[in-house]
Design a protein around this nucleic acid. Structure first.
Lengths: 221, 221
DNA sequence: GGCAGACACCGACCAAAGTAGGGGATCACC
DNA sequence: GGTGATCCCCTACTTTGGTCGGTGTCTGCC
């Protein structure tokens, strides 16, 4: 990944003081080299293309074009740059969009200098850099997104007999009864019988809800 | 959270050398205090209950009971302890289970000493501690788990008219046509007409697949 | 051996989902 | 003011889904 020794940086923030502070911190490390600074998203896009930095330290709120928008456009052009989003305490709600958009890191501006520097090295290395508080958000999200529903779904699915399990897996994939009987070599009536039993055990009223449980329980894909 | 100044630790690893190394690193920080050590999961459970540590540094592979199993049982009893999973390079596949099980952090044993210490403080503070490489895994998972399917689903759903959107949202919740017509005040035939149009636009064959797309697109919940 | 329970299987019947096609209202554009 | 596009609504018809009841088999148990 690293072209030579020093990692080329681009600093993007609309506040000159913050750029100066960041610059001082990062320039103090001999392995980092600041190639340029930008004061808004549009200028960041321009400089990213011209200077080809390895890591871009990007503020979110800026005039003209915000950091996330700029990041998306930069990543669409150059796959090589890593974007490390810098944020203040109250802006944690942008995590989703930043992560979806391809950010390599998401750190608080209030992080310790060494932590910032470590973060730059991490993302340059292809890993991710997250402030602990941000990491917590991500972990919580990861846990909740599936794992309440998922646990319930798995518990329900465990009640099924092997054959019912087979049928449910196909239902979860959106198969019709005729496709199921074709796959499992059964008569229509048998498939339907299994379905009735499945609906009863999963405590749902129709195959749509059954399919959702199969999906949540990880029976599909 | 923090009761006094020093954070009480419990070290769990079956290798005495690693316990010694960890102990030396962590005891060098005046804000940390090692309350005890355990060489397997069962003993960890016993000591966690007796010593009431704030943070437990937990290895995964151990005889008797592994670290994840021990963590799950410890967290089931005491909600206050934070568990920081320590792992070697090749064991990253346990991330899912660790995070689902309630781990507050997941770090590589090869992390720098300062990074480990920082991790302990982070989890004691209610945040999360992740090694950059682990964080990358989590970020990737977060991105992929939803955001390929999700983007596609949202794109498809955008094609729908407002009324079709309403119908699909209810289908995604597992509603039958009669429930939908009741909710939206329509005749059965109208609901079916909308359904036909929905199936066409989403390019699916039946309401089960439509419901799955609604679910992936975030129309439900 | 008889009996209970779980499982996979099936036929006949009724309910729900999906298809094909059309009416009417609105809006934009020439 | 005619034309086309879009949307919402609807009737009549076919296909699929779901219920109810019942058969044969295997297993474990007294």
């Amino acid at each position: 990944m690293s072209t030579g020794l020093p990692i080329g940086l681009l600093l993007v923030d609309d506040d000159p003081l913050i750029r100066a502070g960041l610059g001082t911190i990062l320039a103090s490390d001999p392995g980092l080299k600041i190639l340029g600074e930008a004061e808004n998203g549009l200028r960041a896009i321009e400089l990213a293309s011209r200077l080809q930095p390895e890591v871009i330290m990007m503020d979110i709120r800026m005039p003209q074009l915000d950091g996330l928008g700029a990041m998306e456009r930069i990543l669409a052009e150059s796959a090589t740059a890593k974007v490390l989003i810098l944020t203040t305490f109250g802006e944690e709600e942008y995590i989703d969009r930043a992560m979806s958009g391809g950010a390599a890191g998401f750190m608080l501006k209030s992080s310790d200098p060494e932590e910032l520097i470590r973060g730059v090295y991490s993302v340059a290395d292809g890993a991710a850099a997250l402030s602990p508080r941000i990491a917590k958000r991500l972990v919580d999200k990861f846990r909740s997104v599936d794992h309440d529903r998922r646990a319930r779904a798995i518990g329900l699915i465990e009640q099924l007999t092997p054959r019912e399990h087979d049928v449910l897996a196909l239902v979860g994939a959106g198969s019709s009864n005729s496709e199921i009987l074709d796959e499992l070599v059964l008569t229509p009536a048998t498939v339907k019988g299994h379905m009735t039993s499945i609906l009863l055990k999963l405590k749902v009223r129709n195959r749509v809800e059954a399919a959702l449980i199969a999906y949540q329980g990880g029976l599909v894909d």
